[in-house]
Every structure is written in C-alpha cells, then in structure tokens.
Design a protein around this nucleic acid. Sequence first.
DNA 1: TCAGCATACTTGACAATGTCAAGTATGTCG
DNA 2: CGACATACTTGACATTGTCAAGTATGCTGA
Lengths: 197, 197
Amino acid sequence: MDVRRQVLDAAIGICASAGPDAVSMRDVARRSGVSHQAPYHHFGDRAGIFAAISEEGFGKLADAMDLALQRGGSPARSCLEVYLHIARDHLGHFRVMFRSDICGTSTHEHTQAEAGRAYAALEKMVELTLGRRADDREMTTWASMMWSLAHGFSALLIDGPLAAKLPSGLLVEQHIAEFVTLATEMVENQAKLLLLV
Amino acid sequence: MDVRRQVLDAAIGICASAGPDAVSMRDVARRSGVSHQAPYHHFGDRAGIFAAISEEGFGKLADAMDLALQRGGSPARSCLEVYLHIARDHLGHFRVMFRSDICGTSTHEHTQAEAGRAYAALEKMVELTLGRRADDREMTTWASMMWSLAHGFSALLIDGPLAAKLPSGLLVEQHIAEFVTLATEMVENQAKLLLLV
DNA sequence: TCAGCATACTTGACAATGTCAAGTATGTCG
DNA sequence: CGACATACTTGACATTGTCAAGTATGCTGA
C-alpha cells in the first residue's frame, strides 16, 4: 500500500545484493507493482532515492552509537562494534551512505542532518576516550582517526579486497574481533599517554 | 594513435572529475575519435576498462610503497603518506580500485596480481613497524589496521563527508599532516609496547 | 454542494546507453 | 597467393532516466 516504502525497500535490497549501480527506477517501480513514473513522484529523481536511503542509514548509525555510548563500557570499542554492525547488517544502506556522487548535489538537507547526528556521536566518543575536552584542531584529528579505522575496515572488508586476504581457516567474525581489540587497545593507550604528558 | 591508451586516459579523466558512474563506452569512444565499438575490441566490456584502470592504480601504489620503504625513514609514516599521495594525485584510479562491483566478476588476473604486490608492500611495512616477524594471525590484524587507517582516511576525505567537517581555517594539507603524525605515533607506540611484553 | 486544488499516480514519448551481430580494411606469415 | 589475426566500423535492439501531459481521488473553503 505504501508505495514510497515499497520502492525504498526494493532499492535497499538491490543495493545490498548487487550494489547501487544496479538500482534502476523502472525496476524498483516494477517490483513495487506501480508504473515506471510512480517513484519520481516520491523521490524526484534517481539521486532522490539514494539520498533517502542515506538519510535512513545515517539515522540508524546515529541512534545505535548514541545508545552504545549511553550503555557504558569502553566508548571506543562500543562505537567500533556498532559501526561494523551497522555496515554489515544494513549493507544496502551502508553502500549508499558514502557515495555522495549518486546522492545528488551536496545531498539533501535531511540527509545531512542525520549525518551530523552521527558525527556528533563520534565526537562524544572521542571526548570520552581522551578523558578530557579537546580543542577543535585535536578533536578533528582524533575524530578523523577513529572514523578512518571504523570506516576503512568496514569498506575494505565488505567490498574491498580484505576478505580475500584472510588466512585460510580464520573466520571473518574472528578477524573482526581481533581488529576491534587491537584498535581499541591502541587508541586507549595513546589517549592515556597524552594524559601523562 | 594508440586507441587503447586514449580510451583509458579518457575514462580515467572522467573518473577523476565525475566518478566512474559517469563513464560511458560511447562517450570515451567519441572523445578518442573512434566508433562506439572500438573500446570493446580492447577491453571486452565496460567492466574491462575499470579492471584496466584498477590494475594501473594498484601498480602505481605498489611501486610507490616499495620505493618509500626502500628509502628508509619511518615505514608507517612513509606508507601512510604514499597512500594519501596516490589517492589524491591519481583520483581517477583511486575511485575505481576499490569498486570491485564495477570491475567485473572477481576482477581480472593482472589486476589481482598488482593488488597482491601492493598488499605485500603493506605486510613488509607492518613487519618493519613491529620490529619482528609476526604469525599469520597477528600480521593480518595489523595489516588490516594499517590499511584501514590509510584507506578510511583517504575515502572519507576525498569522497566522504570528512572534508566538510574541517574547522574553518584549517587547510586540508594541515589536517592530513596532523592525521599522519597522530596515526604514526600511535601505531609505533603500540608496536613498542608489544615488544616490551 | 460544488469549484478549485493538491496528492498520487498513469501513459506516452525521446535521447542515450551497453552490447550483440556482422561487416571491412590492413597487415603477416606459410 | 590465400588463410588468418588485428583493429576497427556500421547497424540494430532492448533498457534506461527523464520530460510532458493526462487521470482519478480526496480534501477544503465558500
């Protein structure tokens, strides 16, 4: 009944199974049992669908990070785990979220708002990890570093050549666990070191 | 005269300016002054062009990393700098190298060989940074971590939302320098710590 | 009650694209 | 000289994104 939702879900499904490039306006319309122009009414153009998927994805990420930080435990570890979890469990969203090229000119307003919420959670996590306030400069550097760890690993594992490089017999889940442990430990050691100086 | 090279360069240029999705067989043929089927002779299909670009890109990366490691200095810092340099200076290649979806089914043989060379350089760098041999398990974890730092940062800075998050007045070059310094220091501290235990 | 209007679509058309099929010209080699 | 590979070209086809113009349905204010 809800055409918008059906079209969106069809697109998300295709993104997860075959990637965003395989999403076609006419195909998602067909799958939703409507005419080839119905999606245009809800999303404007092809980029509009991707912007909507991206918005939803960043929303999920922000919510999950907020929740993880609220729950306590190591902030760095929690956020890394959440990031990887979202990337793997919402592959359709994740594959779109960082493709600004297909989401249209500088993305929609709502999409940027959700991305902003996620970035705010990231900064919160950095502050908790550092154990003190940081100025703009240091905050940006640390946020970039944490984000790079989480995002780089997700990207390389999901669509990149990393999965193929795992030694035989090593499960992906084990590798993820070891990565998260090393990254968390390293980051927290560095934070401690900075407190001492 | 060299149609293959002309087509490839046209495609690389479009990747750099508008992204791989904007590359069209007929367009690159037109730009090269040949018929719309000439590129098919050299590359088989659209994916073939991307596989060739990817091969060239990984080749450049592997060469640059080998050279950097040979030159001495901090291996971690050298490789991070090289990775960022390649990503920014060969944007057309970089945007394709990790898009396995558009490079065809599990990519071409040659492409994988070049990617393998780059990965070997990465492992060499990890070994130098750790200051000792590591078993498969530890090597994979460390390689993932270093690669994630370099790749995540490049991806977020170039096409992701990171560039927009820089505090006003902070140049991209400055941010890169600070990122590299923090990441190098952190990684090397962790390596030292592991040697003590 | 009914005209006016917004919402949620549909049908029809068009240029552009990826790719298959079949041609042609230019070597090169036994 | 003839067989064959290389490097193209011309022609066709289904599919795509999108513009333009229609239609049906529900609300809303006079």
